[in-house]
């Protein structure tokens, strides 16, 4: 399980694999295809990867390759634990 704490994504070993840094408040209406594996943000034009489609291993591999990848994370996705 990947922990999300203070805008950081951490592996179970506590390694930080990404820092979430979007300054915009994005909702599904801001994405051109919000349910698709990838979509484009209509506010900044960046590609956004929908983590609903990824396993934990796939996500970690993706972020090792490019930690700046923009992610869409559903709080109800069981691969994540959101620590408020």
């Amino acid at each position: 399980m990947i922990k999300i704490q203070k805008n950081r994504l951490l592996t179970e070993e506590g390694k930080v694999i990404k820092t979430l840094s979007c300054p915009l408040r994005i909702s599904n209406a801001d994405l051109d295809r919000p349910q698709a594996p990838e979509s484009q943000c209509l506010r900044c034009n960046r590609k956004v990867v929908n983590t609903d489609w990824l396993s934990e291993l796939q996500l970690v591999a993706l972020l090792e390759e490019d930690p700046s990848t923009c992610l869409k994370i559903n709080r109800y996705n069981p691969i994540f634990q959101v620590v408020e």
Partner: peptide
Amino acid sequence: YDSGECMIVG
């Protein structure tokens, strides 16, 4: 209740 409440993007 906005869908963004369930989402984190970044």
